[in-house]
Amino acid sequence: MIIRRRKAGTIGLNLTSMIDVVFLLLVYFMVATEFKTAEESFPMDVPIRNHGQTLALDNEPLVILVESSGVGEKEIRLRLEGPWDPISSLNALSTFLRSNKAGGFGNSGLFTENHPIRIKPTSDTRWEHAIATYNIVVGANYTNISLDEPL
């Protein structure tokens, strides 16, 4: 009977099963991970509506009427309620709000920073157009902005 001599091999850990599990975990997390998209937001207060007796407002709010005229980003119609000149675009609205701001350049404006501004879109206005208008008002550094009920 022939007796084979055992090889004098080095003692080592068998890494194969660990690598199997590790790769399974890696594949699982790679497939299961969803990256959060970069989102930002506009803060807005939603005060409780008072249905009782209300005091007269100190300042008559500036009401901005918004309507979508198409699906494009710039296809938007704006109008200011009151004795104001017609506004043709978001840029014109921005200019109007900035130039009529009290304490601003020349200090000849009518509206203070916390003057109430109400954005009043129509029922069919696209959300992006309402938000674009909101963005213009925020960009002009007004702080008291609300979204009104649809026209």
Binding site: E40, D45, S123
Partner: peptide
């Protein structure tokens, strides 16, 4: 449409504790 946004805002307002709302863009 803004109609649905407003309905959602009014439903949140009806909570009665005036939470801070964030319009996400």
């Amino acid at each position: 449409k803004y109609l649905y946004i407003h309905q959602a805002i009014e439903a949140i307002r009806a909570v009665g504790t005036s939470p801070r709302m964030q319009l996400v863009v």
